[in-house]
Amino acid sequence: MKTIFLVDDSATMLMSLSEILQKAGFKVETAADGAAALSQFKVGAKPDLVITDQNMPGLTGIELIRETRKLAPFRFIPILMLTTESQQAKRLEGKAAGATGWLVKPVAGKDLLGVIKQVLPGT
């Protein structure tokens, strides 16, 4: 079973995305902010895919991606960024920091699973 790691400071988002993903057969792990995610990555969390919100207190999504890419086990892992329609510029920054792609909020289940299928082989 593939593991997806969600990072979002909004519990509502975490809840709704987790539900969609779990129904689709993924194992889901979550963190409420970038620092928490990063410390989990450092102590051995090894998801197949990371989805992170961009706007979070503390580390932003982009900062988290930049830090995450420095961790050897996370060099090649697909990382998706949650952005809003208006954040086109952030996507450029995100890509430069190492993001694989992005999702635009609000995220419909169909789109979410579609994008995951697109970046995660074997799903």
């Binding site: 963190a31 409420a32 902010d33 970038g34 620092a35 928490a36 990063l38 410390s39 503390g58 580390l59 900062e63």
Partner: peptide, 9 residues
């Protein structure tokens, strides 16, 4: 942020 929040869950 790392120092502040690493223990904060």
């Amino acid at each position: 942020a790392l120092i502040d929040k690493s223990a904060l869950k």
